[in-house]
């Protein structure tokens, strides 16, 4: 699946494709054993500006362990105006997150064991809890909250199904099959 020559392997076991576009990599944290495929784009440069002017430990994107970012997906921190100030906010992904091909993720928080389908759009500042499956082609409106154990579909995305208790294992299996 991952040819050695195309992927760079880091010390923590992350496999990053050489053809991916990772900007601002010093602001990105990868948990470990994460795979990033070709043409993937991670905007670590869009980070919150610390008023002191130092970009000390300003993490833009934190990705958990065993994640899988498919081809052509895009991770971008969300931004908004709060109290007159416009800034970018950090984005956090949990463990075992699978992002499908071509999906654009601008969520604020994504929990663990989340499967995002192909060509999805996750709106700004959405919060996705654990054990969620997002079907292909879903658009999730900004500021929405997806509770655990749901399956989301549609445009805008609404919860259509409640996943059974075995959701964590099944989602992990789907991830491993990729």
């Amino acid at each position: 699946m991952s040819q050695k020559s195309e992927y760079i392997q880091t010390e923590t076991g992350n496999k990053v494709s050489r053809k991916s576009l990772i900007i601002g990599s010093q602001n990105i944290i990868l948990g470990g054993k994460t795979i990033i495929q070709a043409d993937c784009c991670i905007r670590g440069d869009l980070r919150r500006l610390v008023p002191q002017g130092q970009n000390a430990a300003a993490v833009a994107i934190a990705v958990g362990r065993y994640c899988f970012l498919s081809k052509s997906c895009l991770l971008r921190p969300p931004s908004k105006t709060y109290r007159g100030q416009f800034s970018y906010y950090p984005m956090k992904l949990g463990d075992h997150v699978f992002v499908g091909e071509g999906s654009v993720v601008e969520a604020a928080v994504i929990g663990s064991y989340v499967n995002i389908g192909k060509n999805c759009v996750i709106g700004k500042f959405s919060i996705i809890k654990d054990c969620v499956r997002i079907e292909d082609g879903t658009v999730i409106a900004p500021n929405s909250v997806i509770p655990s154990f749901s399956s989301v579909e549609g445009h805008p995305g609404i919860v259509v199904e409640e996943l059974p208790e075995t959701a964590a294992e099944m989602l992990e299996r789907e991830l491993n099959h990729q």
Binding site: D45, R47, L49, S79, Q85, F86, S87, Y88
Partner: peptide, 9 residues
């Protein structure tokens, strides 16, 4: 404001 922020980044 967004453009302002982007210019810095």
């Amino acid at each position: 404001a967004h453009i302002d922020c982007l210019k810095k980044l």
